[in-house]
């Protein structure tokens, strides 16, 4: 067992195995977890741990596990998302100190087989699973041959950081076994955590005229759910096509737990530039986003229909 590895990468299966051996969650564990959660969600983020004493390293592993339990109790996507972002940033700093073997070990944790050519290469499907969603990491801008994407060291670290973020962003499913003292601590900490950003822009000016599927997506967005890519794409395409300005569309995504203005801006501007059309209701249905039989065949016709009916009845 490698305690240093576990402390740096507490989401790893090795760290989880270590935690399984632990019998109870003590006062110290809870206090450390509270601190970890508050710093992760606070402005300064998480600082790398430089002390190599066993007790400290063990504390790092357990505080992570307990913080995750608290997040499970808090049931708040925004907190979880912010936590994952801060944690993964620190993971990135640890990774930059690793030798090649260490990078390979972390990659293996995500099921990625790393080949050591020029200087690193990984199968394109694995790359696409974890690639950051920005133009610099678009597949087309990568060096790809024979099904492998070739990455420089810093690029690989960024990809692994993203993989870690995705892993830590998964909502812990089982809350039944969480001890009482952890539940209590979660409630104590709730009031001290930063409030999520306000839902921005001019999205709600005439909410009634949005089709049910769009209204639902906006609601999910407001609740800081992590919407799948197709949902975000559809929402953004719709808002742009109904005349919303790029700035306002970006603001509408501000409550996303993984919100990053730069990335959002790139994506929304890309959509606007390429002038993507809004998919038909049939397509929306195939994405699993259709939620009601609202009587139109294209989302853009909904407003028109509502308008006509309002005039009829008015």
């Amino acid at each position: 067992m490698d305690l240093l590895f576990c402390s740096r990468y507490p989401f790893s299966s090795e760290a989880k195995a270590l935690m399984k051996k632990k019998i109870s969650v003590g006062y110290d564990d809870v206090e450390r977890a509270k601190k970890r959660l508050l710093s992760a969600l606070g402005k300064g983020g998480l600082k790398p741990v430089t002390v190599g004493v066993d007790a400290v390293l063990e504390g790092e592993v357990s505080s992570y596990a307990v913080a995750r339990m608290m997040l499970a109790c808090l049931k708040n996507r925004y907190f979880l998302g912010r936590f994952a972002v801060a944690e993964s940033k620190r993971v990135g700093r640890y990774l930059s100190e690793e030798e090649d073997a260490g990078l390979k070990r972390v990659a293996a944790e995500f099921g990625v087989a790393l080949f050591s050519d020029s200087p690193f290469a990984l199968p394109f499907a694995d790359y696409l699973k974890y690639a950051p969603k920005s133009i610099d990491y678009k597949l087309i801008n990568m060096r790809m041959r024979d099904g492998k994407v070739h990455l420089g060291r810093s690029e690989l670290i960024r990809v692994l950081e993203e993989a870690a973020r995705m892993r830590m962003e998964e909502m812990p499913a089982d809350v039944s076994g969480i001890p009482e003292n952890v539940r209590k601590a979660a409630e104590e900490v709730r009031g001290k955590l930063p409030k999520e950003e306000g839902f921005g822009g001019k999205v709600f000016m005439d909410e009634g005229s949005y089709p049910p599927c769009i209204a639902k997506l906006l609601e999910r967005m407001r609740n800081s759910e992590n919407l799948p890519h197709t949902a975000r794409w559809y929402l953004a395409a719709f808002l742009l096509k109904t005349g919303m300005k790029v700035e306002d569309v970006i603001a509408a995504f501000r409550t996303a737990p993984d919100y990053n203005e730069q990335v959002t801006r790139y994506q929304v501007e890309y959509l606007a530039k390429r002038n993507y059309s809004v998919p038909s209701c049939a397509s929306v249905d195939t994405y699993g986003l259709c939620i009601a039989d609202c009587g139109v065949r294209h989302p853009l016709n909904y407003k028109k229909r509502v308008f006509v009916e309002a005039r009829k009845s008015g």
């Binding site: 696409l128 133009i135 678009k138 087309i140 890309y270």
Partner: peptide, 21 residues
Amino acid sequence: RELSGWARREIADYISGAGLN
């Protein structure tokens, strides 16, 4: 078989030359 919708779009972009920096 397991590629996500996002991954498929990246592949489509690659093949059609979209988004090359």
